[in-house]
């Protein structure tokens, strides 16, 4: 009996969590345009989706944005994590607090403040406007703290003598870093990069405020399409995005669990 209740409870939670996505997925294969009835199975919306040039452009933007922002944030975040790890206790705590703030900060605040900052900067230099560069900068900005949070624990775990051992064996500081420290923290760097990548794909609010005319990513396109009445193409698109994010999260989790095994 108790086991049954436990399982029922779990099933209910999963139902609540995934019912909306499930419905969306099912309707992406629905022939009928209306959401009320089931008109039969089709891949038609997917085909139409890939023919829609506006959506394909947004998809391209989203991927370029995700890759660029993830790679740049990974470089900056990893370098910062190494610096933070070498700090003394008090400054380290202060910096970590500053690092965690954007993570906890509501996206809307981050988005609006970045937009104001960009516009302020453009006014200062007298030219330029919101566009791909600003949205990229915004994505790099909100990704860096996550990379730091991913890399730092691994650095803390490292045997402090390992770097010294490399120097002792004749390696210059740079060689010691690339031959000893970097290989050790690579799993954490990769999982940080994947996390940054998914966060960038996911983001709507910050992108919405920091992008300019003509530059849209998928979430912005979906939002503007949804306002004109929901097109089943969006269901198809959302299903695909969900699938991609699922796969990436699975990869990150698997890497984490492998880390635990060691």
């Amino acid at each position: 009996m108790r086991r049954f209740v436990k399982r029922l409870y779990l099933a209910l939670i999963l139902l609540f969590l995934y019912a909306p996505i499930f419905v969306l997925m099912v309707y992406s294969f629905n022939v009928s345009k209306s959401r009320g009835n089931w008109g039969g199975f089709t891949f038609g919306w997917y085909a139409e989706l890939f023919r829609d040039r506006q959506i394909m452009q947004a998809l391209w933007n989203t991927i370029v944005l995700a890759v660029l922002s993830a790679v740049i944030a990974t470089f900056l975040g990893t370098a910062s994590a190494i610096g933070i790890n070498a700090m003394k206790k008090l400054p380290k705590r202060v910096i970590l607090g500053i690092n965690n703030l954007p993570v906890l900060n509501p996206d809307i605040v981050t988005g609006v403040s970045l937009m104001i900052l960009f516009i302020f900067a453009f006014n200062m230099i007298g030219r330029g406007g919101l566009g791909f560069t600003t949205i990229l900068l915004a994505h790099i900005t909100f990704n860096i703290p996550y990379v730091i949070l991913s890399v730092l624990p691994k650095l803390k775990q490292l045997d402090k003598n390992m770097y010294e051992a490399a120097l002792d064996l004749g390696a210059t500081p740079a060689a010691a870093f690339f031959k000893v420290i970097l290989p050790e923290i690579t799993p954490a760097i990769v999982s940080g990069m994947i996390l940054a990548f998914t966060l960038s794909i996911d983001d709507f609010i910050i992108s919405f405020f920091t992008t300019g005319a003509g530059v849209s990513n998928l979430s912005i396109i979906i939002y503007s399409m949804a306002r004109r009445g929901v097109n089943p193409k969006i269901n198809a698109l959302s299903t695909l995005i969900f699938a991609v994010v699922m796969i990436l999260l699975y990869l990150v989790n698997r890497m984490d669990s492998e880390k635990l095994k060691h």
């Binding site: 045997d159 010294e164 051992a165 120097l167 064996l169 390696a171 000893v180």
Partner: peptide, 27 residues
């Protein structure tokens, strides 16, 4: 340290976990 003609054996060994035995010694 990397220019001194001394080598150290550390208390906790500080072996490089990503390298096998031979590569550790060959470092």
């Amino acid at each position: 340290p990397y220019k001194r003609r001394v080598n150290t054996v550390f208390q906790r060994y500080a072996l490089f976990p990503h390298l096998n035995v031979a590569d550790n010694i060959a470092f």
